[in-house]
């Protein structure tokens, strides 16, 4: 069996060589001659999802889900790569490897990339979460030999409360402070749309005001069938008090700009998994922390490792050491995969 696979494999990789290698550009697959989420321009890139530190412009060829390709086109312009290929639900053959894109539950279009080569199956999960999210397809666990897990919230102190609970906090603050604008910081891709949708599902049907940086991505979500209700631009002239008791969504960085001065006595909120730690809340000067994350928390990370039953876990992107430690304690082979160029959850 092993011999037959080797015969089919036309490259000259020595037996036992890792099917994927960390390189300066990103994670490289020699058998298929491609990179996963490269941080620098490369000839062939497979992209898990549209966040800026994973999806960069300037590659020769890009293979990604249709949604990720659309998002990259919105952010970088239609010519963001030499050629663009949409991944279907089936297998795509690349050199001596074949790949398949499976939902990761992170944001719209996010995918795990299943790579098979040399008789082994590797899952590069990208960023993922396990809880249900009406703005994207749910994570599907895929049994594999090597599972590459993110570890953004890879510490046992991270146990995210239910997003509904956090949205109830926001609605409670709105009714307790009807004279104050509620400025909710959220990343423009994924988090913003999810917060809007959670608000709608909790019965908040008033218009939601958007910073200009969010409008196009919200429009795109709507076009893909995610209903977001009435959205208005948080710009233009008018009396200040029209924002009193209203929700305004903007990228957190925008709160430090003159744009934020148009709002009456704002309550500054921030929707992020980091808001579970009060020291972080205080550092950022956030008044209303909302612990809403698009990443797995500690129980989700450890449950996923159990679900995929892999021979080995590679941990990347965050707090590798703790998750590797947990694997070791639980008799699971694991090691950190040191990649350069990835950020913490983008803000």
């Amino acid at each position: 069996m092993e011999r037959a696979d080797m015969a089919a494999n036309q490259t000259s990789l020595p037996p036992g060589a890792p099917p994927l290698l960390p390189r300066a550009e990103g994670l490289y697959c020699p058998a298929g001659d491609f990179f996963v989420d490269p941080v620098r321009p490369v000839a062939r890139a497979l992209i898990t999802h549209g966040h800026g530190d994973h999806a960069r412009a300037g590659h020769g060829a890009v293979l990604a889900t249709p949604e990720t390709l659309d998002i990259m086109a919105i952010r970088y312009g239609a010519d963001f790569a030499g050629t663009r290929q949409a991944a279907g639900t089936g297998w795509t053959t690349l050199g001596d490897a074949r790949v398949r894109f499976v939902p990761a539950g992170h944001i719209l279009g996010s995918a795990q990339i299943v790579i098979e080569t040399g008789g082994r199956r590797i899952v590069a999960a990208g960023d993922f979460k396990r809880g249900s999210d009406p703005t994207c397809a749910d994570f599907e666990p895929v049994a594999c030999d090597i599972f590459i897990s993110e570890a953004t919230f890879g510490l046992p102190v991270f146990r995210h409360p239910s997003p509904q609970h956090e949205i109830a906090k926001l609605l409670g603050s709105l009714s307790a402070n009807p004279d104050r604008a509620h400025l909710v910081g959220a990343y423009a891709l994924g988090k913003a749309q999810r917060v809007i949708r959670l608000l709608r599902d909790a019965g908040h049907d008033a218009p939601i005001y958007l910073h200009g940086a969010m409008a196009r991505l919200c429009d795109y979500y709507v076009a893909r069938g995610v209903t977001l209700g009435p959205l208005l631009p948080a710009t233009g002239d008018g009396p200040r008090d029209r924002f009193a008791g209203q929700v305004i969504l903007g990228p957190p960085a925008s709160f430090g700009t003159p744009w934020a001065r148009r709002f009456p006595d704002p309550v500054v909120a921030f929707a992020s998994g980091w808001m579970g730690v009060r020291q972080r809340v205080r550092q950022r000067g956030v008044e209303l922390p909302l612990v809403i994350s698009d990443h797995s928390d500690w129980p989700e990370l450890t449950a996923t490792i159990a679900d995929v039953a892999a021979e080995e876990i590679w941990v990347t992107h965050g707090r590798e050491e703790a998750l590797v430690r947990w694997c070791t304690l639980n008799g699971q082979a694991a090691r950190p995969l040191h990649l350069v160029g990835y950020e913490d959850e983008p803000e």
Partner: peptide
């Protein structure tokens, strides 16, 4: 586990 606690305390 003491290592997990130390890593967490370092972070928080």
């Amino acid at each position: 586990d003491e290592v997990l606690f130390r890593l967490s305390y370092d972070y928080v």
